[in-house]
Design a protein around this nucleic acid. Structure first.
Lengths: 127, 127
DNA sequence: TCTTGACTTGGAGTTAACTCCAAGTTATAG
DNA sequence: CTATAACTTGGAGTTAACTCCAAGTCAAGA
């Protein structure tokens, strides 16, 4: 369950640049990479999964700092034990739901535009 | 249909800071503000609507530059005339749909976490 | 043995999106 | 008339998230 990828390989697999991967390690978004005898980093498919998670979360507009406790969570087991993390997740969930709604509104707006080409009115809510 | 707000007022109404509003004008995200005799900016409720649109689009992770043709669109009438803008909108639509799906996956992940607290597997797609 | 290529490091540079500041102008209230 | 508050400008500074670079190490092939 650990396919031993070089940084170049995991870079291609994950879509993140080598620099970005090292940067993520530096800011502790990724755990310190395992090293070969010569000091070179190597990665497992679990690492790839984490990178995919990061990519996915970034698409939702989450900042790297916001992700940290979240990523920690993905490896730890039981949240129930940590009420802080639990409520953090809850509020994240709500944020994302708001975001999805916002995007659906924009989607509607676009669909209208693509059909008719009318202006916009009070369709958009402030804050 | 133009309630004549000062920059301070529109700032409170829109949630954007005065500096940000001037910045948006500088980078041409907002049209040049109308001026009173003394040179002070003033705004209408249409301006407020545009600002709300910007806020809404930002929530979806769109960059200010990406928004520009979009905002232009919101005031112009018929897109059908401009095939460039039309396809731009189309691809934006698809991007947003992908984003929504990504967020729904994360939402599921969170929901699972909140209940059981299990690890994550191949649930997340790369790129 | 020498060269090539894949990696290592620390640190500097870049871009987007603000955010702050100093210096100046104008309108109103006391 | 003067102080205060609300605005103006241009430009400098900040933060996040990279991105690039120079100098060095190490292993394998000609």
């Amino acid at each position: 369950m650990s396919d031993n990828f070089t940084i170049k390989e995991i870079s291609k697999l994950s879509g993140l640049s080598e620099d970005t991967i090292r940067y993520y390690e530096k800011i502790q978004l990724l755990p310190p990479a395992k090293r070969k005898d010569n000091g070179h980093r190597f990665y497992s498919s679990t690492d790839k999964d984490i990178m995919s998670l990061i990519t996915c979360m970034k698409k939702t507009g989450m900042s790297l700092n916001e992700m940290k406790p979240f990523l920690f969570l993905s490896q730890e087991g039981d949240i129930q034990l940590d009420p802080n993390l639990y409520s953090l997740l809850q509020s994240h969930k709500e944020k994302i739901e708001v975001q999805i709604k916002g995007m659906q509104i924009i989607l509607e707006f676009i669909n209208n535009k693509l059909k008719k080409g009318e202006g916009f009115g009070k369709t958009f809510y402030a804050e």
